[in-house]
Nucleic acid binder design. Sequence first.
DNA 1: CCGAATCCTTTACGATACTG
DNA 2: CAGTATCGTAAAGGATTCGG
Lengths: 120, 120
Amino acid sequence: MRPDPQHSDCRGVASILSRVGDKWSVFVIMMLGDGPKRFNELKRMINGISQRMLTLTLRGLERDGLVTRTIFPTIPPRVDYELTDLGHGLSRPVQALGMWAKEHQREIEAARARFDERNP
Amino acid sequence: MRPDPQHSDCRGVASILSRVGDKWSVFVIMMLGDGPKRFNELKRMINGISQRMLTLTLRGLERDGLVTRTIFPTIPPRVDYELTDLGHGLSRPVQALGMWAKEHQREIEAARARFDERNP
DNA sequence: CCGAATCCTTTACGATACTG
DNA sequence: CAGTATCGTAAAGGATTCGG
């Protein structure tokens, strides 16, 4: 049974997909699939993300109910981020996507090279 | 078995995920999962996309080897877009993501409302 | 350590007009 | 019908600085 693309509610689903689709969100979700992580831990794991973008991404995920933020009032302060049940549910298709990307990385790079060759 | 998020090659996979992550690409892939479509057919199905963005999106997908472009030299001209085998493979996790988004749309909207309530 | 705030540059995107 | 080209704005994102 096909998921009926013709009549999917583009409008509502778009705002969710654009979150999932967000480059950084995908990585954060993948990293958290493993278990709770601290802020700088995530920052180190996701190479290239700026502090600002990590903050914004985490806020967005928290807003969507996908991630919880736990503050430990210690010195120095410690903040843990963890997937909610909803977030874990999402992480499954996201991980599938990530694995697909990894498996077909070479094919796509080759296709890009061929295309760029044909279109100088 | 977990997909080992710690050691995933962020750098290479990122460029693929950012394509998948692109809002419009996701919709085009979902629409083409059904079978080949013409340019304006896609434009009508994906509400809100501009002609320019549809062109750019299709070029990107073609470059990645996910979509083929077939020109029929008729008058008026006709161009069909169709998923390649690679594209069909990708469409599976993408459809899964889309279905998840549809199923949990309400939950996420509720979470957003709660968050915005708590953070005025 | 975890973040908010500011500034500033780059990019994405829509609107419009034009072609085979 | 299926694009390409150009332009102007809006948004994303990096770098830096400051604070609890």
